[in-house]
């Protein structure tokens, strides 16, 4: 077990290095020197030189790369161009609102879609299965922006059930601002998830052990919840990691529409303000989150399926 964990952690190191290299090449080599953009076209040579020195653009590329690696390790990404705040502080401020939106939304999505998937798998081929699958494919085809705009317009503006946008750091006041964006996230991701889990579960229901379980007289409920669900855990866990980018995109759009001051709004503001260091830091952190998520599922695999360790 421990050897497996260590091996997995070590195997993430080259990936992390690769991510650092790609982000560095994008921002420091392709992106080049953003000082002119920051100072406007009337900047004097002296101003440009000072700013270049301040942000280290006068250093050779390999020094800049080492500086960037240091930033990753020490979680100190310097200051934002636009707000002059420390980026690490901005990120710490943004994590709370983002997590309080995305964690409940994600949990509800996963539980609801697993429940629906079990239901349609049980009724496979019947009208309820067909209807839900068709609804899912239709739902998957609609743009996330359409969900957000319609949801905000109809449920918040027209019906007045929720605040249109805004945020309150205090609990429980915070909750009322998070319900509608959370529900919209659930609606957006449900279609894909139900279909994915349905396939994963149906793959299992065709296995021999299910026939055996039925043959020895277990109830359908026990067959599904005890045997099938347990054995589908590997694709389910995998899907949860695959969803991380969707969570990030969801956070972008939902936070900016509903005025929630999380990491998504911060990134969108940075894009609008051409705030290089913030975008760079967020790209790095999101990639690290993804790698960490992958690592975590690799380790969780061993808990749901003891055979994994022997591979």
């Amino acid at each position: 077990m421990l050897a497996y964990v260590v091996r997995k952690v070590l195997s993430a190191v080259p990936t992390l290095f690769g991510v650092a290299l790609i982000v560095f090449i994008l921002f420091n080599t392709v992106g080049g020197d953003p000082t002119y953009q920051m100072l406007g076209r009337h900047a004097t040579a002296k101003q440009v030189a000072e700013l270049r020195h301040e942000y280290g653009f006068d250093q050779p590329q390999y020094i800049q790369f080492i500086t960037y690696l240091k930033q990753i390790v020490t979680f100190d990404y310097g200051r934002s161009y636009a707000t002059k705040q420390k980026i690490s502080d901005m990120i710490l401020d943004g994590i709370g609102p983002s997590l309080s939106l995305m964690i409940p939304a994600f949990l509800v999505t996963t539980l609801l879609s697993l429940g629906l998937a079990l239901l349609v798998a049980y009724f496979r081929g019947r009208w309820i299965d067909r209807t839900i699958v068709i609804v899912c494919v239709f739902g998957m085809s609609l743009s996330m922006l359409a969900y957000i705009l319609f949801g905000q317009y109809f449920f918040a503006y027209k019906m007045g059930w929720f605040p249109i946008s805004g945020y309150e750091p205090m609990w429980p006041e915070r909750i009322q601002y998070l319900i509608l964006p959370g529900l919209i996230f659930v609606a957006v991701s449900l279609g894909y998830d139900v279909r994915f889990y349905r396939t994963a579960i149906l793959d299992e229901t065709n296995q021999d052990y299910v026939r055996t379980a039925r043959a020895k007289g277990l109830s359908e409920g026990r067959v599904y919840f005890k045997h099938v669900l347990k054995n589908s855990m590997i694709p389910i866990l995998t899907n949860i990691v695959i969803e991380i980018p969707l969570l990030i995109l969801g956070a972008f759009l939902l936070e900016s529409f509903f005025g929630i001051p999380g990491l998504g709004s911060m990134t969108i503001d940075a894009v609008h303000n051409s705030d290089f260091p913030v975008i760079k830091a967020m790209t790095t952190l999101d990639a690290m989150l993804f790698i960490f998520g992958n690592l975590l599922t690799d380790i969780l695999y061993t808990l749901v399926d003891p055979r994994v360790t022997f591979e």
């Binding site: 080259p14 991510v19 994008l26 980018p245």
Partner: peptide, 21 residues
């Protein structure tokens, strides 16, 4: 290694970074 690395950067961030730069 190359494709693991590229797929580790969430697509939307990579898209934003490239389109932005």
């Amino acid at each position: 290694w190359v494709y693991t690395t590229v797929s580790s950067i969430p697509n939307i961030m990579l898209l934003i970074a490239i389109a932005f730069l």
